[in-house]
Design a protein around this nucleic acid. Structure first.
Lengths: 339, 339
DNA sequence: CTGAAAGCGCTTACAG
DNA sequence: CTGAAAGCGCTTACAG
């Protein structure tokens, strides 16, 4: 925190009777500098307390920030609470480390200031974590002339979407889970940014603002045909404990098969089923998405996907690489929680 | 991702026959510009596809980045796995939001490239998450002439340490937990960056490289007097599940009171005790640190502290505020897991 | 192996 | 209400 005068390359150059650019070379291409010059420059730098090239000036000159911005549509605390969001960010961070890139977190809450904060980040590209179709930040980010990766959607011009085919995976998962069931039900992610937990009956997927959720619901509906009476419980967050109440409310409708939109939500259903003494899968079939480490242990039927890999893909896009060739991989992994 | 030519303020100025600085005023102090001029400038900007002031150029000119860097001594995935680290980061993020500041994550792994990554972050100040005394990144960060907050220590010249008095809190917690105990034991955070889990007997605190861990151990020793035979199990990470094995190893030594260095580790002990049919606190007294949401539910005796508040303090320091007046607050909260 | 010059895109007092 | 000038600290071809 020593707030010494700022020492610049020019100061160092002056001190040892050399040009500023030679000092620059000492830091950027030391091989091109005579050993004796290098030594003198380093000595002068040490004497003056020069701290090395200023990263901001360097970024301006190189027209390259060496950093990507990750736009989160939530308070950080919530984002980190979600195990899949964490896996995703870990994937992003891995690419950043490999490429020596920085990682700027930009939590947004829907406030007007979000726009300025997003615009004023000194980054070369952006990753937007799943958001609603109408999120105003989306258009702003895409209008910045920098590469943008959107995880999970929505699809917008100027951005690449990374994620699995949610509708197809839902179709297949519903086929497995609802096979032989007479009273299917769904435990769903939030429909909208308000995240109001509730129990609905046969809600229209069109009313769902989060594309991932909407597509999964559509996939489930594809399979089901008549969905007029389908109980759909909507949670506030992707959290096992937090979802306990809605899982209970859902089981109150006495379903015999539940598709939940994540492992965490599926566990919430299993927890609730356990409290009621229901046998799984005999009385109740349950399935989810993600296939995190706990899913295998619990024998959970789930859609296997790698948020880590998707995080990597997003980071590569934000860094300006050509996009990954294919959609993100997924597969339905059938275990013992379904019949 | 439209990679249009870059449009600058000068282009906009030229386009509508105005000086570049007037354009600048339109973005920074629109009140000082004649309404008609403002209109024309905005029109020209729209026509040209000008995206607003470049954040990097602005930062260079203003000598202010509007961002703080958070140095994590681990892969992101691990850092996020720790509930207290998440609370801490949430506190940091809250201040960032209030102040319109950016938040740059800088995970370090001990590699040589860490140094460059830390130096090349365009930030106004740094927060260093608890690290070992000898972490080379520490000296680098402190030599940058920017404010530095270190959470938990080590104390180094040029940085402010934020955290509780670990030794005093340990002394008090040990007094509560070991009261009437004949075979005390400790479940400890890692001693060193290698994070090798192991069971030791009366290890010297001086050998512990993480200051938080060292001070807590010292506080416990203060209370104990003779520690020659004290079983101390060391975990790899602050994670309830991960710590299960070492908790078991510790209970194999048949202690009747365990001080664990966090709620998570205390839960690991309670889990292990449950598996053995031990009664708490009759057969085994257990206590921890943090007082997270689960602690109250479990009736855990623990050291109450707010990592969120400490994250806020660190962020304020990194932003250049005078430091918080006092040390971080803590108190021993006695519940039912101790006698 | 080293230097002179230009310029990255912007903002800041200072005049007028 | 608007402009001319300087400069934030650095790097990049290009000469020599």
């Amino acid at each position: 925190m020593s707030r010494a005068e700022r020492v610049t390359m020019a100061d160092v150059a002056r001190r040892c009777g050399v040009s500023a650019m030679t000092v620059s070379y000492c830091y950027n291409q030391p091989d091109r500098v005579a050993p004796e010059t290098l030594r003198r420059v380093r000595e002068a730098a040490a004497e003056l307390g020069y701290r090395g090239p200023d990263p901001t000036a360097r970024s301006l000159r190189r027209r390259h920030n060496g950093a990507i911005g990750v736009v989160l549509g939530e308070h950080l605390a919530y984002a980190f609470e979600d195990p899949q969001a964490r896996r995703f960010l870990a994937g992003v961070a891995e690419v950043c480390r490999e490429r020596g890139s920085g990682l700027n977190l930009i939590p947004t809450t829907g406030a007007a200031e979000d726009i300025e904060r997003v615009k004023s980040a000194s980054v070369d590209g952006y990753i937007v974590w799943t958001t609603v179709d109408t999120d105003p930040v989306l258009a702003v980010v895409c209008g910045l002339g920098k590469p943008v990766a959107v995880h999970g959607g929505p699809a917008v011009p100027g951005a690449r979407v990374v994620g699995i085919d949610n509708r197809a995976s839902a179709r297949e998962l519903a086929a497995r889970t609802f096979a032989g069931a007479r009273r299917p039900a769904v435990l769903s992610f939030p429909f909208d940014r308000d995240r109001r937990p509730r129990l609905e009956t046969g809600p229209s997927p069109d009313a769902v603002a989060f594309p991932v959720t909407r597509e999964r619901l559509r996939g489930i509906y594809d399979r089901l045909g008549d969905t007029g009476g389908l109980p759909v419980a909507v949670v506030a967050r992707n959290d096992r404990e937090d979802a306990a109440k809605m899982a209970d409310a859902l089981l109150d409708t006495e379903p015999d098969a539940v598709v939940a939109m994540s492992d965490q939500l599926a566990f919430a259903v299993l927890d609730a089923a356990g409290r009621r003494g229901l046998r799984v899968p005999e009385d109740l079939a349950v399935a989810g998405w993600d296939d995190g480490p706990d899913a295998e242990r619990a024998g959970l039927t789930t859609v296997t996907q790698s948020l880590f890999a998707q995080g990597r893909d997003c980071a590569l896009i934000a860094l300006g690489d050509r996009a990954p060739k294919t959609e993100a991989a997924w597969q339905a992994t059938v275990r013992t929680t379904t019949r």
